[in-house]
Design a protein around this nucleic acid. Structure first.
Lengths: 111, 111
DNA sequence: AGAACTACTATGTATGGCCAAGTACTAAGT
DNA sequence: ACTTAGTACTTGGCCATACATAGTAGTTCT
């Protein structure tokens, strides 16, 4: 049990929420998402994001289309589905509740 | 990939943080913690909290002593260690950063 | 003594983040 | 033309956690 490991655990699920939200704002491909997550100081690596995108697609929450790039191999551009939007809304509520609950706990004073 | 499952994932790691914080505020045993977590709408069950407490103890973050109860079997009353306090502080910072980062992501408007 | 309750223990399953290695395509340098 | 570097995506395996479930042991009440 080390700090780094617990930090990883804290991110679980939240990453899915963030990525779904990024996709909901318009067409993006993996590197776009990595860039945005990194700039928000959420560290993510390829080995995390690609399997996650595959899961989201298999669950019908996102779709993608291949788009040729002028500077490298073709890219998968993702968009969110209706089902994905519904799911995202629910996650948003869950996130708010979780923040509220956690902050309630950690704001309690010594008894 | 269903909603419930993702909600569970979101809680991962945060639970450890909450429990460590509850213990830091004074001696408690498992049922006390369950009660407080439940009242904060963080659903937890026995099968989750006991193994977690064992992990925390093995990691040297908490200690416990047996205290006889007047209404049932003896209880393990937990207290936090110095190492646990340090760990808790780090987790607090991680939690704040995570909240900030996530809120930054989800507050972005459509591009 | 037996039933009900409380506190704790133990085992097995599923999931997700991550590492590491690998594939495939393009562009630039020689 | 061939090599090198860079980009984009894929895959297999590992580990840690939450949870369901079942079980043990002590106490109190009838």
């Amino acid at each position: 049990m080390n700090l780094e490991n617990t930090q990883v655990q804290m991110r679980k699920g939240i990453l899915e929420f963030c990525i779904l939200h990024i996709i909901s704002r318009g067409e993006v491909y993996a590197s776009d998402m990595l860039e945005e997550l990194t700039s928000a100081k959420i560290m993510v690596v390829e080995g995390t994001i690609y399997p996650l995108l595959t899961r989201l697609r298999k669950a019908g929450l996102v779709e993608y289309k291949w788009v040729e790039s002028t500077s490298g191999p073709p890219r998968k551009y993702f968009t969110i589905t209706d089902e994905g939007s519904t799911f995202l809304n629910s996650l948003g509520m869950t996130w708010n509740e979780l923040m509220e609950s956690t902050n309630q706990i950690i704001s309690e004073k010594q008894s």
